[in-house]
């Protein structure tokens, strides 16, 4: 029996879907195991049927997203949240810095409350996982194509999938010295712009450049740091209990190793540490007062 699979997209960039297609020739093997019953981007089916497995990409940004999420939960035996937006809000959640009125007024340049749009923007963008129960999460912006294959191969025993859980620093090949030794000094006496420092094989934090790796879940293979570009946290916080707040994790780590005074005035600290996970702190209440999103209710 082939697994009946649907791929659904909420408010998102469809990058995760492209990552799915980036299995390239392996997709032909995967198609032997699964039967894609719904995928708006590559097929014409207009209704999601009851199915075994639904991949859902994207954040909950409009009233339609919210309704669709609840409906998908009912239709799926197993539901997997795909990508940064579904798992922890992702970049679209950066609009949570503002109210919807501010956003609509600036974008559609009209008198207050006048422009309504084709659907209703929710006051705050939420992650899929904070609205419904999900059976498994594959993080990343975007996740790796292999992650999809693992989910399909291990269906329905997702516990067998061992995604990395430590911080990106374990995957990063850049050299760390001061970070690993018990010293009381700062790793750098100055905080630098990433593009004003020399290329070396030293850790970015030791070069005085803000790198989110220290507060970010591993699993991406360290591709950004490998390209001499600091991490920006797209795999979200590590999954351990208590480290949900990626931004706080980053700030507390950096405070002890860099002279952070300058950050307050010069750096866009919130836009850096919460770039992918702002919805996790702006929606802290939601998980607790979640009305009716649970599968078991």
């Amino acid at each position: 029996m082939r697994i009946k699979v649907a791929y659904c997209i909420l408010t998102s960039c469809t990058g995760c879907k492209i990552s799915f297609l980036d299995m390239h020739e392996k997709i032909l093997d995967v198609l032997e195991k699964i039967d894609i019953v719904y995928s708006q981007m590559i097929q014409d089916h207009r209704e999601v049927p009851e199915c075994d497995l639904i991949f859902v990409e994207g954040s909950i940004s409009t009233d339609e997203d919210y309704k669709e999420a609840l409906e998908l939960r009912k239709k799926a035996k197993y539901l997997v949240a795909v990508g940064a937006c579904a798992c922890f809000g992702g970049i679209p959640a950066m609009r949570n810095f503002y109210s919807t009125d501010e956003i609509l007024d600036s974008t559609y340049s009209q008198k207050k409350g006048r422009y309504t749009g084709p659907n209703e923007l929710l006051p705050k963008v939420k992650s899929l996982s904070s609205v419904i129960d999900v059976d498994f999460e594959i993080p990343g912006c975007p996740p790796l194509p292999e992650n999809f294959i693992e989910v399909i191969d291990n269906y329905p025993n997702f516990d067998n999938i061992k995604l990395p859980t430590k911080t990106l620093c374990v995957e990063c090949d850049l050299k760390k010295e001061k970070l690993l030794s018990p010293i009381r000094e700062f790793t750098s006496l100055k905080i630098n712009d990433p593009y004003e420092v020399d290329d070396t094989d030293m850790c970015f934090l030791e070069r005085g450049v803000l790198c989110m790796g220290i507060a970010t879940r591993s699993g991406c293979g360290g591709r950004c740091v490998g390209m001499q570009v600091p991490c920006r946290g797209c795999f979200g916080p590590p999954p351990q209990e208590g480290s949900e707040d990626q931004g706080a994790g980053m700030i507390s780590a950096v405070a002890s190793i860099l002279p952070t005074g300058r950050l307050i005035a010069k750096e866009d600290i919130l836009g850096l540490v919460y770039r992918y996970s702002l919805s996790m702190i702006t929606n802290l209440q939601i998980k607790r007062t979640n009305e009716g999103g649970n599968k078991d209710e």
Binding site: S12, T62, E64, S106, T107, P118, V229
Partner: peptide
Amino acid sequence: SVLEFRAFEKFLEGRMAREMPRI
């Protein structure tokens, strides 16, 4: 009708300019 809107222009305000190619 296009059904999604993510307000990029709004939340790009205040971000570091060098981060634009990353966001």
